[in-house]
Amino acid sequence: MTGRIDGGVHRRPSGADTRTVPGGTLVTSILYAPAVPTEQLSAGRLLIPGNRQLPTHRDRAAETALILLSGYAAVLAGESLRPVLPAPGDLIYIRRALPYAVVNLSRNAAVLMLAVTTDPRFGSALEPAPDLDPAVTIRAENLRAEHLERITRRRVSSSRRPR
């Protein structure tokens, strides 16, 4: 985009900015060209329902930052699908062309994330990585079981504390 902006641009996403991707994740584009005169940045909101995951993909042209806003998630990155378990407020950086998937560890509650990328059209160059999906599915189930065990242990140990 060319031209000068004299002031901030306020934009509320509309229903047309939300799409469902395979697996049931709702992706809402918030900041993207041409809706906002951005040249090198875009952002979107990811709402991943319980027991679901964002399909494995890569972006050969853009870097991505994922910020967990709420919920329990795992980001599986690279060919080895090494898990990162962020807490709300944490940022996970995904370098250009690195395959990754986002897994909701909860069976019921949704995960809310903010994705910020250097693709000004937000997701225009995403490439699916279906070769990794079977491994992601197995890893996701194991991570969900571990998460449930951690939550259960935390609840049991806190109920036995002396008062």
Rank of each mutant, 00 (worst) to 15 (best):
L148V: 06
L112F: 04
A109H: 05
G24K: 08
G15E: 11
L47R: 15
G3K: 06
V116W: 07
R154H: 14
L66V: 01
A110I: 03
L54K: 04
E146M: 15
H57F: 08
L68Y: 07
A101Q: 02
R163P: 07
T25Q: 08
G71W: 04
P37S: 07
Y100E: 00
G24D: 08
M1A: 13
S14H: 10
A61Y: 03
V156S: 10
R58K: 12
A129Q: 01
S14A: 03
I94N: 01
Q53G: 09
L68E: 10
R160Y: 06
L126S: 08
A62L: 00
T118Y: 01
R161I: 12
D90I: 03
T56H: 01
S124Q: 13
R144P: 07
R95G: 04
D90E: 08
V103R: 09
I92T: 13
G24W: 05
L26D: 09
A35T: 05
L54D: 06
G44E: 05
L47S: 11
L46F: 15
P120F: 01
A62R: 00
L132T: 00
R139K: 11
T20W: 04
E39W: 02
R139I: 02
P162Y: 10
N51T: 02
L26H: 12
S70T: 04
A33H: 13
V103T: 04
L47M: 12
G71N: 11
R107T: 11
A61F: 01
S14P: 05
P13W: 10
T20A: 12
A135N: 05
Q53H: 13
P13A: 12
D59R: 00
R4C: 08
A140E: 07
L66F: 09
I5D: 08
V21M: 13
V102T: 10
R121E: 14
G7T: 00
I138K: 06
L112I: 06
L47W: 05
R163I: 05
T38E: 08
T64G: 01
A43E: 05
A65K: 00
P55T: 06
H10M: 11
